[in-house]
Design a protein around this nucleic acid. Structure first.
Length: 313
DNA sequence: CATCAGGCGAGAC
DNA sequence: GTCTCGCCTGAT
């Protein structure tokens, strides 16, 4: 059975990457179908709680290896990270074709962080704190629905709603190991769903937005392929024609679904950060195409620091 | 029980 | 154009 074992080993891609933290990516609120896997209890390891505490308090990755599972692009992927070593549980071919791009691994985030104005102590700290964040290249339709759901909602419930939506309307699939997972439902599937069925996913008043928007796409009244080809301002304008999509949701969709890295979503948190830290206004002109990445550092920093005391500077 | 969570649409002015 | 208000739901 030696050869078979070796073949299995080969179906694992190991890469080294700086400025990459799967945990930070998972917790940065851009992706709702990436989740941490609990450690196998077989090896007398620390309890999950100990792990969580350790991981949560460290600025960089904790020593322990962490595993995550992701459903995206109609696929299922498990990822492990230990320091700057990242293991993708897929073939080299799949990694090169799909995940390298999805995780934005060709972008030099060190260079982006180095471009930050050192006079801006807050942003410098925020970027140091979230230096492993990357802006994923996620599916446009999935981002539209996800951020429709995100409005006036909290991350935990957003995840649950999306999970339910996928289990109810998404195609059921199995990994080679037999693990069951669900695709994100397409516009056709959601357009065909009755309002009652959508309500059952705990979407609340957002179910109407999803029903109408899905219908709009399914009937061809809005064309996602066309929106993909538009520059930022126009793409945002077109997205805002969709029911339930306002400025904030449109900017999130542009940033995470179209990789318009200049998009700068302002929610209640960012509003607070901008008012408190940038009373003269955020220096958009300085960061231009990377403003959205700066936004993500600031958002994540605020998310993590939220609840802690307002220690000056 | 009130408030809040990664807002938005509708209506008033 | 700007302002206000109501809205599903679950956690605190």
């Amino acid at each position: 059975m030696g050869p078979e074992r070796r073949a299995k080993e080969k179906e694992m891609v190991r890469v080294r990457a700086e400025y990459f933290s799967i945990r930070q990516i998972c917790e940065s609120g851009q992706c709702f179908r990436l989740e941490r896997l609990e450690k196998q209890a077989s090896e007398g390891e620390d309890s999950p709680e100990t792990n969580r505490e350790r991981a949560g308090s460290a600025g960089l990755d904790a020593d322990g290896e962490e595993s995550y599972a992701l459903c995206a692009l109609g696929r299922y992927l498990e990822i492990r990270q230990n320091g700057d070593e990242i293991f993708f549980d897929c073939t080299r071919q799949e990694f090169e074709k799909v995940w390298k791009n999805y995780f934005d691994l060709d972008e030099d985030y060190g260079k982006i962080i180095a471009s930050i104005d050192r006079q801006d102590a807050w942003l410098t700290r925020a970027a140091a704190h979230g230096s492993g964040i990357r802006i994923l290249r996620q599916d446009l339709w999935e981002m539209i629905v996800s951020f429709l759901i995100s409005q006036q909602n909290n991350i935990r419930r957003i995840r649950r709603c999306i999970d339910l939506l996928c289990k109810t309307f998404g195609e059921e699939k199995r990994t080679k190991q037999g693990r069951r997972y669900y695709d994100f439902p397409g516009a056709q599937a959601l357009a065909a769903a009755s309002p009652e069925e959508l309500r059952a996913c705990n979407l609340g008043y957002r179910s109407r937005y999803i029903h109408e928007t899905a219908g709009c796409i399914a009937r061809g009244e809005a064309d996602l392929a066309q929106i993909r080809a538009l520059p930022h301002e126009q793409a945002r304008q077109e997205l805002m024609k969709l029911c339930g999509v306002g400025v904030k949701v449109a900017e999130c969709v542009c940033l995470f679904g179209l990789h318009h890295t200049q998009a700068f979503p302002v929610d209640v948190h960012m509003d607070r950060v901008l008012a408190g830290r940038y009373p003269q206004g955020f220096p958009f002109e300085q960061y231009q195409k990377n403003a959205g990445i700066m936004q993500q550092y600031l958002f994540y920093y605020d998310l993590k620091k939220g609840g802690e005391k307002e220690s000056g500077i």
